[in-house]
Amino acid sequence: MKNKIGLFIFLAIILLFNSCKKETNSSTKFWTPSKAEEHYKNQNDSLKWDYKMFLEDLQSVNEKSQNPITDGVFPVANYKLLGANSFKGLGSASNVKKINHKNISYSSFFIKKNDLNNKVLGSKKSDVFFNILVLTDTLDLKNHKLSSSEINSRNHPNYIGQGIYKTKNNQIDYLAFKTADNSSFAIINMRLFDLKFGSTILIAPQKDKSLRSLQVKMPVMEYEELDTKIDSLINTQQVIDFFSKKSNI
């Protein structure tokens, strides 16, 4: 009996230790439930708003955009409430590649290294969290009326980007976002993609006006190596085959 009681106490101590360990690990994370609650309270508190940034945003309130969702001007909590170095900037990148004489346009969104993502990024300077590669049958490199993209930080520490690609008979609308808890999703023409299964989405419009998609996993990469990584990707047989099908535009 004493042996059984001793074993029970030992197991109880192990379970308690593991429970405490989990709580300690979760408490070291930046985006805890208490931090999230505090942040969203600040969003509703006019005393915490960044009025300088709000007035700057108001200057562009009448600017028209091709993007799927109209930008609204909302006052938001000062970024520094989450830490002086919690935000270092973000950006988008785009280019055009070729596969077997076909044009492949891509757009990417990235977040620069800051105090919130530095442990995840390690030695990397930025985090490219979304790439979209679209097969297109028409380009407008001069006037840029057939494509558009933007990324916005006004949901800091969550970030959202959007854009469009126009083909002769179709339009690709896309939106992607990354949250403070390191989750990321994309919506492309109302199809939802969980980016933990691959941050890179390939889209091939079809001759019958339907779409085909291919989700590809790529390692965490920074903006500075993006174009080289895309070159490597489009030279893989899987991607060549996907964009070379006869049913594609």
Score class of each variant (00 low, 15 high):
Thr236Glu: 14
Leu202His: 03
Asp50Met: 02
Val220Ile: 15
Glu222Phe: 07
Glu23Ala: 11
Ser213Leu: 09
Lys52Gln: 09
Lys48Ser: 13
Lys35Gly: 02
Gln238His: 07
Lys4Asn: 13
Ile240Glu: 13
Glu56Gln: 15
Ser27Ile: 05
Asn114Tyr: 12
Glu224Arg: 15
Lys64Asp: 02
Leu202Ile: 08
Asn100Trp: 06
Phe54Arg: 03
Ser65Pro: 06
Tyr165Glu: 07
Leu214Cys: 08
Lys119Gln: 07
Asn44Glu: 14
Lys97Phe: 13
Ile203Asn: 00
Val239Gln: 01
Met53Ile: 06
Asn42Phe: 09
Lys196Ser: 06
Asn78Glu: 14
Thr24Met: 13
Lys178Cys: 01
Leu195Asn: 01
Phe243Asn: 05
Ser65Ile: 01
Gln66Ile: 11
Glu222Trp: 04
Ser26Phe: 07
Leu81Ile: 13
Phe197Val: 02
Ile164Lys: 02
Asn67Asp: 03
Gln215Leu: 04
Leu202Pro: 02
Thr138Ala: 11
Phe130Pro: 01
Arg212Lys: 14
Gly72Tyr: 10
Lys217Leu: 06
Gly72Glu: 14
Leu192Asn: 10
Asn117His: 11
Ser107Tyr: 04
Gln206Trp: 00
Gly6Gln: 11
Gln59Glu: 15
Ile111Ser: 00
Ser46Glu: 12
Gly91Ser: 10
Asn131Trp: 02
Tyr159Gln: 02
Leu141Tyr: 02
Val216His: 04
Ile172Lys: 02
Phe185Asp: 01
Ser244Cys: 14
Ser123Met: 12
Asn85Cys: 03
Glu222Thr: 03
Thr200Arg: 01
Lys35Ile: 05
Gly91Asn: 09
Ile5Glu: 14
Val96Ile: 13
Met190Val: 08
Lys102Leu: 09
Pro33Arg: 04
Asp194Val: 13
Gln206Pro: 05
Asn143Ile: 08
Lys29Ile: 03
Ser244Gly: 15
Leu202Asn: 13
Ser232Gly: 09
Ser147Leu: 04
Met218Asn: 02
Ser107Arg: 07
Leu135Gln: 01
Ser247Ala: 15
Phe110Ser: 07
Glu37Arg: 06
Thr28Phe: 13
Phe197Met: 06
Asn118Leu: 14
Gln215Cys: 04
Gly72Gln: 10
Phe8Thr: 15
Lys142Trp: 01
Ile5Gln: 14
